[in-house]
Design a protein around this nucleic acid. Structure first.
Length: 876
RNA sequence: GGGUACAUAGCUCAGUGGUAGAGCGCCGCCCUUACAAGGCGGAUGUCGGCGGUUCGAACCCGUCUGUACCCACCA
């Protein structure tokens, strides 16, 4: 369809026939988004009187592009903020991006490599300039994708972690932490990536089980010898001791003595240390303080020298035959040399053990002794834990809190310095006489000969930790900070609970005088494929959300994601499901089209209940229940249940029943038709508004056409009017059951759906007389005389449908069906009778349960009577 | 080694004590004048195994098996 994409209607039910019979997302999505932005709907006013509702975007890496995980997260955030906006809050969805230190630097370095140059050739300043240029050129990818998705973010407030203001925030907090003694410099064993050439923090290390080889090596000679085992043989060059457990009888005689270290001319002491597990291996451990975190600690306890034998590239520096070899080459060379000396006591054997890899490039991490900057996290983490413990911050779903506590309660100090060029440079200067000066944002750095600035930059997460307030202008005391801090909710994946969430908590509480950065943390899961498998490029199941948005529309992608979003649980998504969501959008489209063709309207007040048919009252009663239900689900971040409830209400109840039943009313005309037109308008109006946060585009297009309103984006959020009509609901339940039963009967008899059948419809004492015309229409029943062939199974007491099947009835099939029904009813009767004969049950079960069982028994009895009668009437 | 989840229809998942549900898929009949991206009807499960508590268990308790993820300085 290419026609009919003109601007939205300028009045209620204008030109309904203009709507094409199929919804084409591409025709409306782009233009609607641009209109929303032009009209400033997404902008936030910090001076507004309205209550604030603020959510920050988890800033995507500038290097990145939108993947389904983003699409998912954005759908949830967008839905939350759109609803709050409709509810009359001053909403801020804060957009922005993260400079992603290592990732971005790696990316640009790869480009340079292709050009045959390197960052070292360029020099620091030129390189950083180059990264900025790269950011300017390709950093906008995500913004474009966010527009496609419909993200209602405040574009004028877009921020970047390296912006001047945010850098000032970083500097401010660094200075403050430093002066408070919470940032310090120390030489320790850190995780070193020999490819990225930088330190990385503990949580940037990904452990996986790798196949290694455990070799056993004899140290020393004769009685003065023992055997140690290792998977990193090359580190023996840096051994400065062997450790055994203090209580280990086997080695007691050796403690305090020195033994010869093979391949070297050194001898090393045997020390006793409780860290050694005497049960493991030989019970003797080689100690390499400069290349292993445990050994570092042992070395500290025993005053051992720290002998560095590898450089930053993990190349051996120890003088001798191994010098210049890479760690892996050195490993086999060392083992070979040891074997020649007869030092290998057990052949090397395969050994699976946990090995750390750089989370950015997957290179095996090398523990390395070096001087770095650290954050003393204990006091900060304590506060972060307490804020959740005492309920000031709620984690949703609450099962996730245990993970959070596990981390904040057992935290090691955080290594924040990175040996990179792209990032916030550490604001510390070193003087000629060993002075160290931390320079705050309003201070001049020291000048003069010999003063140099620290060459390292800060961990990316240092600046992300300030995101909830740095984006609002902090450290200035801006109105935005006052209005939107703390944020209302943080919506993010459980996978960055530690990387990001916990650190925002620590820094937020610290910087903002103990006020945590948000009231609620709503954690979602990871997007997976339709079989629940992790999406990854290497596995070949990764999907570009743009492909699906192109094919099925953004609404379809959003709705599918929302529909799978159970709190904290991973979300599978498959193309078939997106297609189904597209079908839903199309269904809404066509239902609205039908409504417009039939004169549905939102003008004027709703007619009085007395004027309405039971069908009208039923649908309005259900509508209001659904409004209440939707509110409860939104408030509880239950997107899957929310989507499901709206889907089924709209499709099953409104489209399949109310719309179908109303056809008869419309055809008859008169006042009842007028009333139904207004009711149908109301139902669609409210339903579209309820759905808008999830599927903004199609609802906007339809709602503006239906109501003539400016935009559903700024329409009022529906309120439960309190209208309920239990009697009408029961009545329509009966109608629906009855119609379904007759349809089943017809299908069983092989009647074609469209085939008209002479029939009498005797609704007896059911009180459903008013529905007879509609039911006859739905069932394709023609008026009939005396003819009688069979009766349908009737779930509503007192109703009889006599269908004249003109001799075409299949008596055998009917007998079979009735017999089956009879058996089921008899089983039901037996079950309920047994239950009601159970004294213990009657004594202990609540009244409503007992009553329910009674009703079931009565129904079973009635069924048996009726079916028996019908069976008797069937010709043999 | 510690921790947290999870095992329900072919697939992906809801369902926290009272007759087993949804979407997709599947079978059958229909282009019934909003929609075939649709309509109507239908089939499909000893709710992982074994015990226990209870009048009653998918649900609570114990245990076993299997899976996923997180944390941890196991040479």
């Amino acid at each position: 369809m290419t026609e009919n994409t003109q601007p939205p209607a300028n009045g209620p039910h204008s030109a309904p026939a203009d709507l094409p019979t199929q919804y084409t997302p591409a025709d409306v999505e782009g233009k609607l988004y641009e209109r929303w932005v032009e009209r400033g709907y997404f902008e936030a006013d910090e001076k507004s009187e309205k209550d604030p509702y603020a959510i920050v975007i988890p800033p995507p890496n500038v290097t990145g592009s939108l993947h389904l995980g983003h699409a998912f997260e954005h759908t949830l955030i967008d839905a939350l903020t759109r609803r709050k906006r409709m509810q009359g809050y001053e909403t801020l969805w804060q957009p922005g991006m993260d400079h992603a230190g290592i990732a971005t630097q790696n990316r640009v370095e790869r480009e340079l490599a292709k050009e045959g140059t390197s960052r070292h050739d360029l020099g620091r300043e030129a390189f950083v300039e180059r990264v900025w240029r790269w950011k300017a050129e390709s950093g906008g990818t995500i913004s474009g994708q966010m527009r496609r998705l419909g993200d209602g973010v405040a574009w004028s407030r877009e921020r970047f972690t390296m912006d001047e203001g945010l850098s000032r925030a970083v500097n401010t907090i660094f200075k403050r932490l430093h002066d408070d003694g919470l940032i310090y410099r120390a030489e320790r064993i850190i995780n070193w990536c020999p490819r990225c050439l930088t330190a990385i923090s503990d949580i940037e290390v990904e452990y996986q089980d790798d196949d290694g080889e455990l070799v056993s090596i004899r140290y020393g000679d004769g009685e003065d010898s023992l055997v140690v085992a290792t998977t990193r043989a090359e580190t023996m060059l840096g051994d400065t001791a062997v450790a055994v457990h203090p209580d280990d009888e086997r080695y007691r005689h050796l403690v305090g003595r020195r033994i010869d270290l093979p391949l070297t001319d050194r001898s090393i002491p045997v020390v006793a240390d409780a860290h050694v597990d005497p049960e493991f291996g030989t019970g003797a451990v080689k100690v390499t303080p400069a290349h292993d975190p445990n050994d570092f600690e042992i070395g500290r306890r025993h005053g051992l020298p720290q002998l560095t034998v590898m450089d930053e590239h993990a190349v051996i520096t120890a003088p001798g035959p191994f010098q210049g070899l890479d760690r892996l080459e050195a490993r086999s060379a060392v083992v070979g040399a040891l074997r020649e000396e007869g030092r290998i006591v057990a052949e090397k054997r395969p050994y699976q053990h946990s090995v750390g890899h750089c989370s950015r490039c997957h290179t095996t991490v090398e523990p390395r002794l070096s001087m770095q900057w650290w954050v003393r996290v204990a006091p900060l983490a304590k506060a972060a834990g307490d804020a959740v413990r005492d309920g000031r911050v709620a984690i949703h779903p609450k099962e996730m809190s245990s993970r959070y506590f596990e981390w904040v309660d057992n935290l090691h100090d955080w290594c924040i310095s990175r040996q990179l060029w792209w990032g916030h440079r550490i604001p510390v200067w070193y003087g000629p006489d060993g002075e160290v000066r931390c320079v705050g944002p309003d201070e001049e750095p020291p000048t003069g000969p010999g003063w140099t600035q620290d060459t390292d930059v800060l961990d990316t997460w240092f600046s992300s930790a300030l995101w909830p307030f740095s984006t609002l202008g902090w450290p200035e005391r801006t109105d935005s900070v006052a209005k939107f801090y703390p944020n209302s909710v943080l919506v993010t994946g459980y996978d960055i609970l530690f990387f990001w969430v916990a650190r925002m908590m620590m820094f937020g509480l610290y910087a903002m005088d103990g006020v945590p950065p948000f009231h609620t943390i709503a954690l979602h899961g990871m997007v997976r494929d339709q079989f629940g498998k992790k999406m990854s490029k290497s596995f070949g199941n990764a999907v570009d959300p743009l492909d699906w948005m192109d094919a099925y529309g953004s609404d379809a992608v959003r709705f599918t994601l929302a529909r799978g979003a159970n709190p904290g649980v991973d979300v599978p998504i498959g193309e078939d499901w997106v297609q189904a969501s597209r079908n839903f959008a199309n269904k809404i489209w066509n239902a609205t089209r039908f409504a417009l063709l039939n004169g549905a309207t939102v003008e004027g007040p709703l007619p009085a209940a007395e004027e309405m048919s039971a069908t009208d009252r039923w649908v309005l009663s259900r509508l209001n229940s659904v409004v209440a239900e939707a509110d409860a689900y939104y408030d509880d971040y239950q997107f899957a249940k929310l989507s499901d409830a709206l889907f089924h209400f709209a499709w099953d109840e409104v489209f399949d029943w109310y719309v179908e039943l109303s056809k008869t009313t419309f055809a008859a005309g008169g006042r009842p038709a007028e009333v139904s037109r207004r009711v149908l308008g109301e139902v669609l109006d409210v339903t579209l508004r309820l759905l808008h946060p999830l599927i903004p585009f199609v609802t906007e297009e339809l709602w503006t056409t239906l109501t003539g309103g400016d935009s559903v984006v700024v329409a009022d959020w529906p309120k439960d009017s309190g209208f309920r009509d239990a009697a009408a609901e029961r009545e329509l339940d009966a109608v629906r059951q009855l119609v379904t039963e007759v349809r089943r009967f017809r299908a069983d008899q092989g009647l074609q759906p469209g085939q008209r059948v002479p029939a009498t419809l005797d609704l007896g004492e059911t009180g459903l007389a008013a529905h007879e015309p509609a039911m006859r229409a739905l069932l394709r029943l023609e008026p009939a005389g005396e003819a009688f062939s069979a009766t349908a199974t009737l779930p509503v007491a007192g109703a009889v449908v006599a269908l004249d099947l003109s001799g075409a009835i299949d008596f055998a099939a009917e007998r079979k069906r009735l017999t089956k029904d009879l058996a089921a009813a008899e089983k039901e009767l037996a079950q309920t009778t047994a239950k009601l004969g159970n004294e213990a049950f009657l004594a202990k079960a609540p009244d409503h349960v007992v009553a329910k069982i009674r009703t079931r028994r009565e129904a079973a009895e009635a069924d048996i009577a009726r079916i028996t009668e019908q069976l008797a009437k069937l010709p043999a």
